[in-house]
Design a binder for these strands. Structure first.
Lengths: 229, 229
DNA sequence: ATTACTTAGTGTAAAAATTACACACTATAT
DNA sequence: ATATAGTGTGTAATTTTTACACTAAGTAAT
């Protein structure tokens, strides 16, 4: 984000709310700033849009630099441009959210000159954020709440193969409320975008659940029809 | 829009899709450009964001300069920033839509140095647009299609007092499909945000319909509950 | 005053979707 | 074998959505 302050009239940046799900909690990736303003505060990762980058490319780059991940689902959702949102000058920022399956292989590796460190923090217990980043985060959460009701974005937070209980768990965390198990299954299956696999969950000390996969083909065919939770 | 091209690395502008309803058709306000690039083409009105303006303020100013109207409902909906979207340099633009009741008092008065003239053109018959403005418009229409299903924005296109048939007409034009009269009335009334007036339509050569008004108070009370069409 | 015309305004039955709700089954661990 | 923890399933009641057509009210013309 707003770490660099060239003497231009205005700066255009992108800030990202990276939502991660580790099987248990919904988290976002925050960086601890190493520079003024807001030194030592937690902030959303962001950066200035490069001269030859599209907006989506820029967002993907920012995410890559911070996590080493590519091919992550990201979407812009709101531009913040209050003249006073940055204490040192005019910075208009476009917010993106990203959805990431955590807890496997890849570690977050914060290699950034303006960040001390980066951490996945549960959204249920966030620190105070720098700039207007609380507002940006709030709007991002709002956005995915609406999105998850109509678009198949929940799968982006899960491994390729998942159980229906895990899927329900994602919905519950994002929507912030409990859902009925039987009704949830009935509905989600009725959309016809899940493929039931001949495979069971492994490594659990109880009856293993059936694994499912999101079937992009079927979804593409449905396109136009509205999914609705 | 992008008429001025200072020698900056990047320019940040706002483009507006002004939807107007005159009781019959849904129209948008387009300007005919007087300068290269795209001289003589039709384009969405837009301008560069001023140094001390918020984004919403800037959008409101652009609308005011073109129409003389203030206090119009506007909302940002998408940022377009392809590096090649403007032939002469990097211009990132944020798109707003506005909803305007046409056909009364106020005339559109295009006083702009870069426009020959401005015209309300029916969305059913639009000319080719400059830059990527077709894409911007398409996305704007998409946006209000979704919005009108969940938020009470239809009223912005109507006079303060309107008939249910007029309201239905707005929905039909935006959604691009016919709706059933009885079901429409049942539903819209069931939301409980309309106030039936003791007043009838005037100046029609047939039975006058009852007038209604959008009741902001009632709507505010419902806030949180979702309207759904 | 009669008539023709145009839109307003209304109800119901069938179908579909949503909700609320509880227990037996399966696998593992001890 | 037993305890434990989560899987997986059905139904009835309610609500919502859909499809559908005629009478009433007012205006205009004769």
């Amino acid at each position: 984000m707003e770490q660099i302050l060239p003497h231009l009239d205005s700066v255009f940046s992108i800030d990202c709310v990276l939502f991660g799900f580790d099987g248990k909690e919904l988290k976002i990736l925050l960086i601890e700033r190493n520079e003024e303003p807001f030194k030592d505060w937690w902030a959303l990762p962001g950066n200035i849009v490069g001269a030859d980058e599209s907006l989506d490319q820029s967002a993907a780059r920012i995410l890559y630099e911070l996590t080493g991940l590519r091919g992550i689902f990201m979407e812009q959702y709101y531009a913040f441009g209050d003249p006073n949102r940055h204490p040192q000058g005019r910075v208009i920022t476009l917010a993106y959210y990203a959805l990431i399956r955590l807890g496997g292989d890849k570690e977050v590796r914060p290699i950034s000159n303006y960040a001390k460190r980066a951490n996945w923090l549960p959204i249920t217990d966030l620190p105070k954020l720098a700039f207007d980043h609380q507002k940006i985060y709030d709007k991002g959460l709002e956005k995915i709440k609406r999105r998850i009701k109509h678009q198949p974005i929940a799968f982006e937070l899960l491994p390729e193969k998942f159980t229906l209980t895990q899927l329900q768990h994602v919905y519950e965390l994002v929507l912030g409320k409990k859902l009925d198990k039987r009704n949830f299954r009935k509905k989600i299956v009725s959309f016809g975008v899940l493929k039931e696999l001949d495979e069971k969950q492994k490594g659990v000390s109880y009856r293993a659940a059936t694994l499912y996969r999101f079937d992009k083909r079927k979804y593409a065919k449905l396109f136009g029809k509205e999914i609705s939770f």
